[in-house]
Design a protein around this nucleic acid. Sequence first.
DNA 1: GTGAAAGCGCTAACAG
DNA 2: CTGTTAGCGCTTTCAC
Lengths: 322, 322
Amino acid sequence: MATIHDVAKLAEVSVATVSRVLNNRGYVGAETRKRVEEAIRELNYRPNKVARSLFKKKTTSIGCIIPDITNPFFPQLVKAVEQTLNEHGYTVLLFNSEDRLDRMDQILEVLQTEYVAGALIVSDQVKKKHLDKLDIPVVAIDKIISTNISSVTVNNYENAREAVRYLVGRGCRKIAHLRGPVGVYTSEERLRGYQDEMTQQGLPSYIANGHYQLSASIQATMELLQQHPDLDGIFAANDIMAVGAIKALARLGIRIPDEIKVIGFDGIEWGMTITPELTTMEQPIVELGNKSAELLLQIINGQVKGPKHYRLDAKLVVRDST
Amino acid sequence: MATIHDVAKLAEVSVATVSRVLNNRGYVGAETRKRVEEAIRELNYRPNKVARSLFKKKTTSIGCIIPDITNPFFPQLVKAVEQTLNEHGYTVLLFNSEDRLDRMDQILEVLQTEYVAGALIVSDQVKKKHLDKLDIPVVAIDKIISTNISSVTVNNYENAREAVRYLVGRGCRKIAHLRGPVGVYTSEERLRGYQDEMTQQGLPSYIANGHYQLSASIQATMELLQQHPDLDGIFAANDIMAVGAIKALARLGIRIPDEIKVIGFDGIEWGMTITPELTTMEQPIVELGNKSAELLLQIINGQVKGPKHYRLDAKLVVRDST
DNA sequence: GTGAAAGCGCTAACAG
DNA sequence: CTGTTAGCGCTTTCAC
């Protein structure tokens, strides 16, 4: 690998001049610039990022922390994030935290000593105090960590109400909710949306916990129907649980959507592969990823002052389960 | 952030001594060591990785290049890789290449200038010559790039034959193969396995291309059955296509497994959520990821000389589709 | 306009 | 056993 010195020697200038043309900063004579560019090409020179980082105390890597890479929602998100970041010359350092605080502490320390330029965090466990130690720009995705930490989230509450309203509009009156795990931001918001809408509609609530998981939701659905055989609608807080519900209903021999209608939340591809295909509130995952990455970049470049909070909307996608 | 100088000053020693206790290299008096450790703790000092990397010309990041993060197979792989690597103090730099060569060139250059310690690559496009430029250790996963580049793969050929044999054992005689994309290593190997086994069994072959994709495989299955209504078995080269086949069969009103049996290849969770649940050749994904990461680490640490090639076996998992 | 030189934080000879 | 020193490759004052 050629260094800046090699280029300087070949172009018969000082390293300072090479650095100037590299960064397009300061005055450089047209003649000189040409000679330098020539030398760069000839040596196939690429500036060493590590050396640059040491001086700048900042790399072009962005830490991206997600709780569970095997949940299909996150890879899609990461893909969008990665795409935007790569376009701007940044690189993604990926961390799978399992949303465990001890892992998180480790990760945050790594981010610090690796001089990452910023971090994108999806976590229910991280609180403001954890982030206070580190002084790099952060954007929270999908959950709000604190009002003074920027975020891009989905309108879980309102969109959940919309899902319920849709079911009501399709004639459902006894609608159960398969809720996600306790303490998880999105899960609590969707639950709140369900409850408020049911109350406003003057309808009774039936709630079971499916923990955002397949097997748990199958179990939960079974129990729900045992206790309330006359349910005519299920609003699952995510698609995986909706798939579980449909699986349980199939086992019980209950016809969808005739006897009972099912709607999910997320919009993962998976929902389209089952029979009947799943109606769902589709999250704008790509937009969520792009927007978060762009916002972070803006903060890094100082193009934006205080914390910003964006809220995107999920969109109803009607398929065969309703 | 405290630097090594701060520690040295507080402990009243030179930076060299601090460096020695940090790296556990060279002689350090017991008394001195204690004072240094004390100072480190007091200042909550963490060595700066970037500075260290600049000197060593090597970071503790490992580049991980995968073709498609939205294919559930890869996130599972990345998770296993990440886990092993993190345990050893390494960090994952993730790149989604779409398996496009132009992206790949960019990525390889980044790996170079970022001083990554090594790379894990899943790609059908990358050839030996691309990797020759860069002189960092590489392990190819899931595909063999060249005999002198280490690899960890799955026994696609033999395991495909096993899948076919199983179908034959269950009484199938007219077995079609939904093949993956042309030119993709795993896809070609599985196709070869299918063909050889069918020939040996003295059975006729029926092949359609599902491109490893859901929609394409639905289409392909429809056409297959239109031309050969008497098929009694389908071996799909991956689970996604198997899911597509099952979906197509459902539309055609063909009963599984009574009229036709379906087996996939991969073992992704998805296969368990559809009805009927999918029989498949389950790949040892976690082992694949762990093994690759370990091998790479060994190469990095010089614990292993020439290129090594490991081949793991997929395992038959019988569920309801056969 | 351009160059010399200091320094980012760390490691590894080389002395002593 | 411990300290001094010279860089790793780059950027940025500060002179000229």
